[in-house]
Computed example of a mutant assay.
Amino acid sequence: MSTAFEPLDLSGTKLPHRIAMAPMTRSRSGAAGVPTALMAEYYAQRASAALIVTEGIQPSAVGQGYPDTPGLHSAEQVTGWRAVTSAVHAAGGRIFAQLMHAGRIGHPSLLPEGEVNVAPSAVAATGQVYTAEGPKDFVTPRELTDDEVRATLADYVTAARNAVDAGFDGVELHGANGYLIHQFLAPGSNRRTDGWGGSVEARIRFAAEVTEAVAAEIGAARTALRLSPGNAFNSIEEPEPEPEYTALAARIAPLGLAYLHLAEDGPARRALTLRLRELFGGPLMLNPADSPTGPEALALVEEGTADLVSYGQLFLANPDLPARLRAGGPFNEARRATMYGGGAEGYTDYPAL
């Protein structure tokens, strides 16, 4: 039986324990998507995590979904991220870049002039997104052509290579929470009848081929995938997620990825989590919905449900979270008003023990 404070080797990325920092959008990179010195400070403060997974990073300009989120598709962005990874490594940490194409989530006002949001199918999400002009309704996206699907896949590969050039220890592909990869997986947002939709095998194809292509480019040991089966966030509709996710886990299992990261939709999904863990066969990182904060989630490692546990808001508010978990607290509370955008307040000013 392992404990959350025992080391773990992710195919060469050696972790001192099993407490990871989950990806969290913070919207502090500016309009050009270039990481700042403040971002380097923020991540370096949290270098005691077993592994830091960054906020979502757009692999292309058209992949942006929110204001002031960072990219990995320009030389300036690569340079900015290199300062972040250097700061984390100097503090003894390890850091993966999460690559996130938002797909239909976002608004044309956030994209380069003349561009519109794209998705597997022309199906709009319900709700609004925050923009510089205030909240705006999600628009109906343009359906990607077959050639554009392949070009988007290539954008992920280029961004993954850029991540390695920027000093990241690896990349996590964001296939969860209603963004582009998830949009391909879900029948409610993927209504295609070509090779990219219309059957279980076709719906998992984009997720599988992106993962395979990135692993071929930078190495499977530096490639991970995040999924959230059944999560209805961002208007995702997948009432019976098991066929897609078991097929996908079985397909990527032979690659030997660094890990699979599951964001559980709730306790009812635990059986599927365990099935996916079995099919995947490699290290599993779990972001549990039923115990998202506090030491109780560490039991998931001891009972064999997961190899690592990822924390979101608790890591946002507690830069030294592993030490606090070992001590049983106390824990700072996250301030919601300063989660997105702004400066150091609510970002780098949370105290350590």
Score class of each variant (00 low, 15 high):
residue 246 T to G: 08
residue 198 G to V: 05
residue 51 L to H: 09
residue 134 G to L: 08
residue 34 V to N: 09
residue 171 V to C: 08
residue 155 D to V: 01
residue 103 G to R: 03
residue 225 L to C: 09
residue 125 A to Q: 10
residue 83 A to L: 04
residue 61 A to K: 14
residue 154 A to P: 00
residue 60 S to V: 00
residue 245 Y to T: 08
residue 270 R to Q: 13
residue 155 D to Y: 01
residue 234 N to H: 14
residue 331 F to R: 02
residue 319 P to L: 10
residue 1 M to Q: 14
residue 324 R to K: 12
residue 57 I to Y: 00
residue 164 V to K: 10
residue 199 S to M: 11
residue 153 L to Y: 06
residue 218 I to L: 03
residue 292 P to H: 08
residue 72 L to T: 07
residue 174 H to P: 00
residue 161 R to Q: 15
residue 225 L to T: 11
residue 92 G to M: 07
residue 139 V to D: 01
residue 195 G to Q: 15
residue 122 A to S: 15
residue 168 F to G: 07
residue 169 D to Q: 09
residue 202 A to C: 09
residue 206 F to E: 04
residue 304 G to I: 07
residue 327 A to D: 12
residue 165 D to S: 15
residue 210 V to Y: 01
residue 302 E to G: 15
residue 241 P to I: 14
residue 168 F to K: 05
residue 116 V to N: 06
residue 17 H to W: 07
residue 249 A to V: 12
residue 335 R to K: 14
residue 298 L to N: 02
residue 303 E to G: 00
residue 352 A to F: 00
residue 40 A to Q: 01
residue 325 L to V: 08
residue 347 Y to G: 00
residue 249 A to K: 11
residue 10 L to M: 08
residue 91 A to V: 05
residue 318 N to F: 03
residue 287 N to S: 10
residue 239 P to K: 14
residue 158 T to W: 02
residue 284 L to Y: 09
residue 88 V to T: 04
residue 241 P to S: 13
residue 59 P to K: 08
residue 192 R to S: 07
residue 133 E to H: 11
residue 295 P to V: 14
residue 34 V to S: 08
residue 353 L to M: 14
residue 268 A to D: 15
residue 330 P to M: 05
residue 279 L to D: 12
residue 292 P to K: 09
residue 54 T to H: 10
residue 176 A to H: 02
residue 123 V to N: 10
residue 203 R to K: 14
residue 306 A to S: 12
residue 170 G to L: 04
residue 128 Q to A: 07
residue 114 G to M: 08
residue 216 A to S: 12
residue 122 A to K: 10
residue 134 G to H: 09
residue 16 P to E: 02
residue 34 V to F: 09
residue 353 L to P: 15
residue 163 A to E: 04
residue 179 Y to P: 02
residue 65 G to A: 03
residue 127 G to R: 08
residue 346 G to H: 05
residue 80 G to R: 10
residue 318 N to R: 09
residue 187 P to F: 15
residue 233 F to W: 13
residue 232 A to C: 03
residue 337 A to M: 13
residue 245 Y to I: 05
residue 39 M to L: 13
residue 156 Y to G: 01
residue 165 D to Y: 02
residue 301 V to I: 13
residue 175 G to R: 03
residue 58 Q to L: 06
residue 161 R to F: 03
residue 234 N to M: 07
residue 22 A to S: 15
residue 211 T to E: 06
residue 269 R to I: 11
residue 16 P to M: 01
residue 326 R to W: 04
residue 35 P to L: 04
residue 263 A to L: 11
residue 111 L to H: 12
residue 179 Y to L: 03
residue 86 S to G: 05
residue 347 Y to V: 05
